[in-house]
């Protein structure tokens, strides 16, 4: 899947502003960004629901709107919410969607796998939010698509539902399905995705594996407590250029920069020279959340 210079405007507001990204076949790709970043709009253009105002989108090598008939059976879509008749029973709904495909998955087994085994006869409107979301996921995958779009598949789910959703997504990819999901949960991107695109205000900020993103720039913090007023000049000599030392509040020492075993050794050696025992020594690698905050100045879940 390929998106090049995508632009989408709603009136005067530009929702997607020259976005380019690619999705590798057989991967789980997460599009990560805060609310209003343009995630859903991008997905809806890829799904063929909306027409782009500029740029080029290819899904499985096809145009999402012009080649809709050919793409529809090959692409599974999970909407952010809804997509079912409120009076339809859960199994009846899934059976109906399955009947639109040539080689659907067995409905019963799919419901069991998603923990929906006991809600077969329950009308859609009486399902819990988590059950509705999982049924939506089941409807997206029951036709055995090559590519699945999941728009915030675990938004508002309880931990158990989230886990069964994650397990299914991992199973999909193990079986050769390509998954594109949007999320504003970092844990989700870090746990599931082999590739993450971080977007904000309709633009791509950065891309990479979750590991690359969190170690890129390799920012980190080493902190400890000791008596206030230690002479810092010895420490500065022991550290490479570019490292910052903070001593606010007094007695709390923080070294900022790429954290390596050598840096840790230099800091402890300096402490040994001064005869100081560092207390509460901790090294923190930056999380995706910190990376995001640095890139956008915005909280993800704001």
């Amino acid at each position: 899947m390929e998106v090049v210079d995508l632009v989408k405007r709603y009136g005067a507001k530009t929702a997607v502003d020259g976005l380019s990204l690619t999705v590798e076949t057989g991967s789980i790709t997460a599009i990560l960004g805060p609310n209003g970043a343009g995630k859903s709009t991008t997905l809806e253009i890829c799904e063929g629901y909306r027409r782009a105002d500029g740029g080029r989108v290819r899904v499985l090598g096809r145009d999402p709107i012009a080649d809709r008939r050919e793409l529809a059976p090959r692409v599974g879509v999970m909407l952010q919410a809804g997509g079912a008749w409120s009076a339809a029973h859960a199994d009846e709904m899934l059976r109906y969607v399955a009947s639109l495909y040539a080689h659907p998955l067995p409905v019963r087994a799919l419901m069991e796998r998603l923990g929906l085994g006991s809600c077969g006869r329950t009308p859609y409107r009486r399902l819990s939010g988590g059950e509705q979301q999982r049924l939506g996921l089941a409807m997206a995958v029951v036709g055995r698509p090559e590519l699945v779009f999941l728009d915030e598949p675990t938004a508002g789910l309880d931990p158990q539902s989230r886990r069964s959703t994650w397990e299914l997504v991992e199973q999909l990819v193990a079986d050769g399905v390509t998954v594109v999901l949007t999320t504003h949960y970092l844990e989700e991107a870090e746990r599931l995705a082999s590739w993450v695109h971080v977007i904000d205000r309709g633009r791509l900020l950065t891309s990479g594996t979750p590991h690359q993103l969190t170690s890129a720039g390799a920012k980190g913090t080493l902190s400890f407590r000791a008596r206030p007023g230690l002479a810092l000049d010895g420490l500065a000599r022991g550290l490479p250029k570019g490292y910052l030392v903070e001593t606010e509040p007094p007695g709390c020492y923080r070294i900022l920069g790429a954290m390596t075993p050598q840096i840790l050794a230099a800091v402890t050696a300096w402490c040994a020279d001064l005869g100081v025992m560092p207390e509460g020594l901790a090294v923190e690698r930056h999380s995706l959340e910190d990376v995001f905050l640095e890139l956008t100045g915005r909280e993800l879940r704001a």
Binding site: R74, Y96, L100, A102, R113, G143, R144, D175, G176
Partner: peptide, 29 residues
């Protein structure tokens, strides 16, 4: 649990089956 593979096997059902299935679903509802 029964083995359940998601290996892609895309394809639309024949038009007549889709239409019949939709008609039955709407009538039941």
């Amino acid at each position: 649990m029964s083995p359940l593979t998601h290996s892609p096997a895309p394809g639309a059902a024949p038009m007549s089956r889709m239409v019949a299935s939709h008609a039955v679903m709407e009538t039941r509802l």
